[in-house]
């Protein structure tokens, strides 16, 4: 019983961190049709900035989080302007190469600037320790990650379903040319969603630093996981991504707890099975 409970809490926390990081990837991929392998690199930049701000400059956790999110967006804007602009609408292979190139560069630079060691982000006292739920206690940090994930899901759902910007975004996802013809400034929609996606990646990188430790090869190590989530959930779908994150988080965590000697064997087996059965993702639309 205790094992089941800890697996469930860990899986939920892990799945929510995955969700926060990869939902931005899912939206940009559904919107701009860019296979962005560098998304994990932005999460890593967020983690590094937060670590530098909190540990080396001694700022508070909340402030470090804000600096990380906006700092990552600031770094990402020129990259989008100079490099991503060129590969919108390009063949997939080109996009894969360009974004893998960007990932390699970011890894190399991070390694040079911050060194190959693990970076920690010191938690504030409020997030250390554990919360007593009456029958069991869980780590406060896990709870914080879960709440962050739920909050991000709720805000995104509201923004996409209920606001004027959300209407334009959905129109651009469905048919960019038609939306542009009807007066939607798709350029701005693209730019804003890219910025939000990068910001969310950075947020996830900071919040999830306890579960996915920040180090130079972060971008490469978890790149596959984020892509898998988007592909399993179906690009551009929030419920799809949420279900995929919880499902894959559950499989991965359960696999690690129950059969640790097999590592990620079951995770990848499950991925292959799901993608083979649902080639368009769990919530993928038929095009």
């Amino acid at each position: 019983m205790q094992t089941v409970f800890s697996i469930a809490v860990d899986a939920l926390a892990y799945g929510m961190v995955l969700f926060v990081i990869s939902i931005g990837l899912s939206v940009t991929m559904g919107l701009m049709r860019v296979v962005n392998l560098a998304h994990g690199a932005f999460a890593m930049i967020g983690g590094y900035i937060a670590s530098y701000a909190a540990r080396d400059m001694g700022l508070g956790y909340g402030i470090a989080l804000m600096i990380a999110v906006f700092g990552t967006i600031l770094i990402a804007i020129p990259i989008e302007r100079l490099l991503y602009r060129r590969i919108y609408g390009a063949p997939e292979l080109t996009q894969v190469l360009m974004t893998i190139g960007i990932t390699f560069c970011i890894i190399g630079i991070a390694n040079y600037v911050f060194g190959p060691t693990l970076k920690t982000i010191p938690l504030p006292t409020g997030l250390q320790g554990s919360v007593d739920l009456g029958f069991r206690s869980i780590a406060t940090h896990r709870l914080f990650a879960i709440l962050c994930g739920l909050a991000v899901a709720a805000v995104l759902w509201y923004a996409i379903e209920k606001t004027a910007f959300g209407v334009k975004l959905r129109a651009a996802v469905d048919n960019a040319a038609m939306a542009a013809a009807l007066g939607v400034r798709t350029e701005i929609v693209y730019a804003v969603s890219f910025a939000v996606a990068v910001g969310l990646a950075a947020l996830g990188g900071v919040v999830g630093a306890e579960l996915l430790p920040v180090e130079p090869y972060y971008a490469l190590r978890y790149m596959v996981t984020f892509l898998v989530v988007v592909s399993v959930g179906g690009a551009g779908s929030i419920p799809g991504a949420l279900v995929a994150c919880l499902l894959l988080g559950g499989i991965d965590t359960a696999g690690r707890y129950l059969v640790p000697e097999f590592g990620e064997f079951f995770f990848y087996l499950a991925v292959i099975a799901i993608v083979c059965v649902f080639p368009r993702g769990l919530a993928g639309r038929t095009r």
């Binding site: 296979v35 894969v96 898998v228 592909s231 064997f265 993608v275 083979c276 080639p279």
Partner: peptide, 22 residues
Amino acid sequence: LRAHGLPQLVLSIALIHLFHEF
């Protein structure tokens, strides 16, 4: 070859990891 585009890429990545683990 069961999928196209991004799912195809993901399948190939999952396969190489599976072979590696095996």
